[in-house]
Computed example of a mutant assay.
Amino acid sequence: MHANVLKPVLIIGGSGVVGAQGAHALRRLHPDLPIAIAGRDLARAEAVAAQVGNAQGVRVDLQRADLGLGEDTRFSAVVLFVKDDTLNSLKYAQRHGLPYISTSSGSFEIAPEVARHLRHPAAAPILLASHWLAGAATLPVLHFAQDFRRLDTIRIAALLDEQDMGGPAAAADYERLTSAAAAQILEHGRWRWVRDAAAASRFLSVDGTQVEAAAYSPMDVVTLAAATDAHSIRLDLALGETASRRRGEAFSTEIVIELEGERRDGAWVRSRHELVHPQGQAPITALGIALGIERLLGLAGGAAVAPGLYTPDGLIDPAYHLQRLAEFGVRIERKPDLVLAEPIAA
């Protein structure tokens, strides 16, 4: 399917900090794809649309079943960069048979979306992309995991600079996801919900500084548990000062991935990969959502996606994702593997 035959992609929250970058990332990937920038403030949406090009600004009202757009307006997909507590955006997408991407739900919040799909399984393809930076940790983990014959432990640590919170929507997501519920982890094969001292952890930033962190529950842990046979999986998040800012530079964003298990040559090892973007979290999130849009619409990686319920790893090839991350400015570094003296306990 060619971009120039599609109706506009409706990006709700597209005039916000991350949503606007998402629109620009999509434009970079697909110069001819029509885009509709949707928000509550029409003037702001139109200003972003003018910057993106081949785009229009529209006003949306998530309290209305038709989103304030009318039932005759036509789009090719619906993308959320804000939390829609009404699910009117999902209902709208299902009524019109449009691909839908959700980006702001913790693992403990997806039941309403899942229930909508179960009730209407043939209505639309739904991509649950509420992973850390829209899959920026999960998809690389699955790529790096190919070096292992058996993967036992997955540890993801994310350092978000305190100056890199983004706009009000991102700040609201962070507050909700870190305070509303305990964090979900997989520990020695058992699911646990942890908070306070049980959730606390530490990890090394990319410059070797020890950082205090806590378990966090976007969709990464449950997705990786379904995709691998690892017995222990957790994602820890720290809000603080990134290594670049400690050097006196602008903030960046850091993702550290540590995998333990039996390498394909039979050695028991711990691997460490570091992913850093010098402009913070927004460009990575924007790219992740843009890759989801292009895959759902059949603009890359295969034909347009059939109705169903998906996570990014079920649609996007990890190697392709990693390639795009590098093209969009992510520095990816693998540290030497640490060979372990004893096999890891099952």
Rank of each mutant, 00 (worst) to 15 (best):
V222Y: 08
L224C: 06
A213R: 07
L224S: 00
D229R: 15
A225L: 11
M219N: 12
A225M: 11
A226V: 11
P218M: 12
T223I: 13
E212N: 14
T223H: 10
D207R: 03
A213F: 07
T223Q: 12
H231E: 14
E212H: 14
S232T: 07
G208Y: 06
L224M: 09
D220C: 03
M219G: 12
D220F: 00
T209M: 13
T223K: 10
A215L: 10
T228Y: 04
L237R: 02
M219K: 11
T223Y: 10
V222Q: 12
D220L: 02
T209H: 11
Q210H: 14
D236M: 10
L235I: 03
S217Q: 05
V206C: 15
S232N: 05
L237Q: 05
D229A: 15
T228M: 07
A230N: 01
Q210R: 15
S217W: 04
H231N: 15
L237E: 03
T209R: 11
D207N: 03
A215H: 01
A215V: 08
V211C: 08
A230R: 02
I233C: 00
T223L: 12
D229C: 14
G208I: 06
Q210V: 15
A213G: 03
V221Y: 06
V221K: 03
V222I: 14
V206A: 15
A230Q: 00
R234D: 11
D207S: 05
T209A: 13
V222R: 11
V206I: 14
L235Q: 01
V221D: 01
V211A: 02
A213M: 07
A215Y: 07
R234E: 11
T223F: 10
A214C: 12
V206P: 12
D220G: 01
D236V: 09
E212F: 13
I233Q: 01
P218S: 11
L224V: 04
A225N: 09
L224P: 02
D229W: 12
V221Q: 06
E212P: 14
V211Q: 04
A214Q: 13
V206W: 12
M219Q: 12
A225K: 10
A215P: 07
Q210P: 15
P218Y: 07
V211G: 04
T209C: 12
D220W: 01
D236K: 07
Q210D: 14
A213W: 05
A214F: 13
V211L: 06
P218H: 08
E212Q: 15
V206Y: 13
P218F: 09
Y216N: 07
S217L: 08
A225G: 11
V221E: 05
E212R: 14
M219T: 09
Y216I: 08
P218W: 08
V222F: 11
V211K: 02
D229G: 14
A214R: 14
T228L: 08
D220P: 01
A227K: 09
S232I: 07
L237A: 05
L237W: 02
R234T: 10
A226K: 13
S232L: 08
L224N: 00
M219L: 15
A215E: 02
T228Q: 02
L237S: 02
A230M: 06
L237M: 04
